[in-house]
Structures are given as structure tokens and as C-alpha cells.
Amino acid sequence: MRMFKYVIKRLLLMIMTFFIITTICFVLIKLLPLPAVKEMGRDVNLILSRREAMGYNKPILVQYFLFWKNILLYGDFGLGEQMYAGQEISQIMLQKIPYTVVVNLYSIMIAIPLGIVFGIYAALKKNKWQDHFISTAVMLFISVPSFVYAFLVQYLLCFRTGWFSLTVASRETTPFFSFEMFSSMFPAIVSLGFGTVAAITRFTRAELAEVLSGEYLLLARTKGLTRRQAIVRHAMRNAMVPILPIILGEFIGILSGSLIIEKIFSIPGIGSLYLTSIGLRDYNFFMALTMFYTLIGLVGGLVVDLSYGFIDPRIKMGER
């Protein structure tokens, strides 16, 4: 019961935070001069009538009310004005999200097992040269920003050797879970993966190394378990407890993806959409995507926090 109350409390706080951020954002956007609709092609009338319906010439408070009403009742975020003029923003977003999700999904599917394996290996070989090698590599990949090795990957795999194409296959012609799609996304997947592998390796190594020095492991060995049995049955399970929330966080993070990787490898995902909306000053898109990104961040943080309590019975939540 205490747990339930705690979860509800955290949820309410999250919603409040989300609401405040959205409100501030809305007001700041409404303070900007409204872009003229002149050069928007044939959809001018559509956009103008929609602006009228959204109360663009009424006070900000009325607009704000209509804004939430449209979202909550009809899931309507308005129309694109500067980009995808006249099209429903929610539709465009739904079209773009799969690209982001697929790239990131591929990347973490590869990165998580690799990270865990490297981490376990480094922990078992603690303070030997293998451990030092892995730890140094991890340090390098964590410190260097992802775009640096994204450029390196792009230069080596796309330009120098020409093994991979520069563009991502279109969803109309290629299914998302096919080899063609995978290989067209491969440079992006690799670039995204480096950081994740490094982070998970470091974390796994630290956790497992700590567990391995625990006394209950010594007891397990004394009972007559082999080293392998002791590690697999006792050490690994305990070490996984703090690693799982991290992995969970990664999974939620795949929705928002990485703006910079999407830009470098020109993946037509949600990040590219956001960048274009900022560049072209499409305020409706900007508002909708800002809400999206804020929400993903908030939910991700909350789920990671709560999952510690669900996974590890030793952590009692809601206690001060």
C-alpha cells in the first residue's frame, strides 16, 4: 500500500512538472510574432480557418484552454504550417517515430548483450591486462562525444570503403525488420551503440566486481560450488539488480533517440523532425515535439526510479 501511494505521488508530481513546463513553453511561443501564412501554397485557407478555430486572435488564456481541449479530447496538436503544411501533426509524428525506434532498437539489442559480456569479462579478470584494456576502451568511448565517432564511422564505412549507403531505406519499399533496412541503418546503429556498450560495460563491471568480493560468494564456494556455479547462480543475479533499471531506461530512451545521430546519418525520424521544426520555426510542430521530448524524459526517469523498488526487494520506497 505504501508502495502504491508512493507511485501515485510520483505520478502526480510528474504530471505537475509536465504541465508547468508545457505552460511556460506555450506562453513563450505565443509571445513570438505569428508567421504569415502567405507562402504556404494551396493550404492557406485550411490553415487560416484552423488558426481561427484555435483562437489565434483571442487572448492567450483562451488559446491555452483550446490547446489543451484539442489535445485531450481529440488528440489534435494542430496543423503543420511551415513544414508539412496543412497536415495533421499527430499523423506526421506517428509516421516518423518508427524510424527512430527501429534504429535505436537495433542498436540497444546489439549493445546490451555486448556490454554485459564485456562487463562480466572485465570483472572476472579484474586488475589483469584484459580488464585494463576494456576499462581504457570504456573510458575513451564514454568521454568522446558520440558525434565524433559517428563522423569517423561515416567516413570509414560510407565514404572510404563504400560498404554502406548514405541514406536509410524507405519504409514504403523495405520492411523495418529486414536485412536491407538493417544494413542501410548500420552506420547509425554502430555509432549509437558505442556509448551504450561502454556505459553498460562499466556498470556491469563495477557491480559484478563488488558482488564478487562479497562474503556470501565465499560461503557459496565453501559449500562446494564451483567458481562458475557460484558466479552464475549467486553473483550474476545480484549484480543484475542495479543493471536492469539502467537497461529499462535505455529502452524508454529509444523513443526519443538521438538528435545528432539522426542528423548525421539523415534518418527521417522524430529527431530530424524536431530539428527541422526549429530551423523552419514551425511553432505547432515545435510545441508538440517539445511536449513529446519532455514527457519521454520524465517518464523515463520515473520508471527507472520506481523499477529499483520493484526489482530489488531490499529497497523500500516511499521511506524517508
Binding site: T17, F18, I21, C25, L28, T290, Y293, T294, L298, G301
Partner: peptide, 11 residues
């Protein structure tokens, strides 16, 4: 802390 950096920068 919950506002994404990119939102602050864009605004």
C-alpha cells in the same frame, strides 16, 4: 532539470 536542454536553447 526536466526541461530538455534543446528546448531551452531553441526558445
Amino acid at each position: 532539470a526536466s526541461v530538455p536542454l534543446i528546448v531551452v536553447a531553441a526558445l
